[in-house]
Amino acid sequence: MRDCLQQETQTLLQMSQVSRISSVFFGGGTPSLAQPSTVTAVLETVSKHAHLSDHTEVTLEVNPAPTGRAPLKDFVAAGVNRLSIGVQSLNEANLKVLGRDHNSQQALQTVLEAKTLCPGQVSIDVMFGIPGQSVSSWESELEEVLCMCDDHISLYQLTLERGTQLFKQVQHSQLSMPSDEDTAKMYTSARKILKKAGFLQYEVSNFARNNAVSTHNIGYWKAQQYIGIGPGAHGRFIPRALGGVYREARTQTLEPDVWMREVQQHRHATRRRIQLSQLGLLEEVLVMGLRMTEGICHQHWTAFSPEGNLHQVFGASTDVQELQQKGFLILDDGGLRCSWNGLALLDSILPVLLLQLETFFHTPRSAMLNTTADRQRDR
């Protein structure tokens, strides 16, 4: 596996126009069950084919597990400088419902160890909307989390995955999910509790204090290029062969055994390559950018959309104007972003904006620009 990871890393870096790496993220599955030497090997390969400074953020996802994991200090010695821990819950009943193989004490021990090794660079994941969870029990649990966390917290609402044991239990009424109203209250109260504790919300699910934001995730939300290595990995980058114009979406083979065989045969295991259209790329810029509290600034949008700026694309839409009047969306000299209340409704706001973006691209440009100019004169 290690040799294959090195080979695919080398090949995809050589295929891309990426020359400088701002972050490396070992995630998906349980990468902390790998050997620290694998982390070392991958980082060494990256540094041979792209610039990797001593200050580059290198994150490792960790699940608190009783056995099968190398000491975290060995991963730090291998080059990891940020740890993301899947605590999920400090409630034993919730952990059992989620099917986790760790208990709250093991989670606490893992977080304490991580904070000792990477002070200020430890993130924990916490989940809400769990069967049997109430708003008050969630608030109490979050207060407990604040007593042990470092400077970064990610909050995720539980999503039922078809085919899982939990999905079947809910489907057969053995467990009941909190109502949509209660989960909305959980999210709102969490934002208030975290703000009071000094955490700044910088994305829909992410909160940080002391500027301990995730460089890697910000790269996703700002539509930067990234390369996905390993079974089932996804990437978005500009291949050298395309001359620096078009970005490709790449997906690596999912099954580990098949992935290894393909890497050994072809030096990489790219299963699917899709050249993103201009509209497809802008859809990603829009969807990911609006997840951030700062939204999308004009300069960032124009870098991807020379055809039309934010005002030209969205300003003339009556639906967008209605969202602004209701106080959910802001389009001004700073760019396009959701308000505090709007961020909680992002899933219902995005379809409106995506439809307007598609309309702009399928409307003759002169007609669209004339309409925008007419509206500006009417004001």
Rank of each mutant, 00 (worst) to 15 (best):
G132S: 12
P71F: 01
G120W: 11
Q133G: 02
I85M: 05
Q133F: 02
A93D: 15
S89E: 10
E57Q: 08
P66L: 02
P71I: 01
S89G: 10
Q88H: 13
S123N: 15
Q133V: 00
A107I: 03
T67S: 06
Q105K: 14
V80K: 04
Q109H: 14
R82E: 05
P66F: 00
P131M: 10
S136F: 02
L117P: 06
C118K: 09
V126L: 15
R100N: 06
F128M: 08
L72Q: 05
M127H: 02
A93E: 15
T116A: 15
G68V: 01
A114L: 05
L60W: 00
P131I: 05
N94H: 15
D125Y: 08
G129C: 00
E57W: 06
V97R: 13
Q133N: 06
G120F: 10
T110M: 03
T59P: 05
L90P: 03
K73Q: 14
L108C: 12
N94G: 13
G86V: 00
V135S: 12
Q121M: 14
V76N: 06
Q133C: 05
S137R: 08
P64Q: 02
P66S: 15
N94M: 10
L72N: 02
A78D: 04
S136K: 10
D74L: 07
F128Y: 12
E113Y: 05
L72Y: 00
S134K: 06
Q109P: 01
L90Y: 04
G99A: 04
S104W: 04
T116C: 14
Q121N: 13
E113P: 01
A78C: 04
R69T: 10
R100Y: 01
D74N: 12
A78P: 01
V97D: 05
G86E: 02
G120K: 14
G120A: 10
V135P: 00
R82Q: 09
P131N: 12
A93K: 13
Q133R: 04
E113R: 12
Q109S: 14
K115L: 10
K73T: 13
V97C: 10
I85A: 07
G132P: 09
L60F: 01
N91P: 01
L98Y: 07
K73D: 08
D74Q: 12
P71K: 06
L108H: 08
A107C: 09
P71Q: 11
V58N: 01
V111Y: 04
Q121C: 14
S137A: 11
Q88Y: 11
Q109R: 14
T110N: 02
E57G: 07
P119S: 15
K73L: 06
S123L: 10
V111D: 03
Q121F: 07
R100C: 03
V111E: 10
V122T: 13
A65L: 14
I130R: 07
E92Q: 14
V122C: 09
I130L: 09
G86L: 02
N91E: 15
S123K: 14
Q106D: 09
V97Y: 07
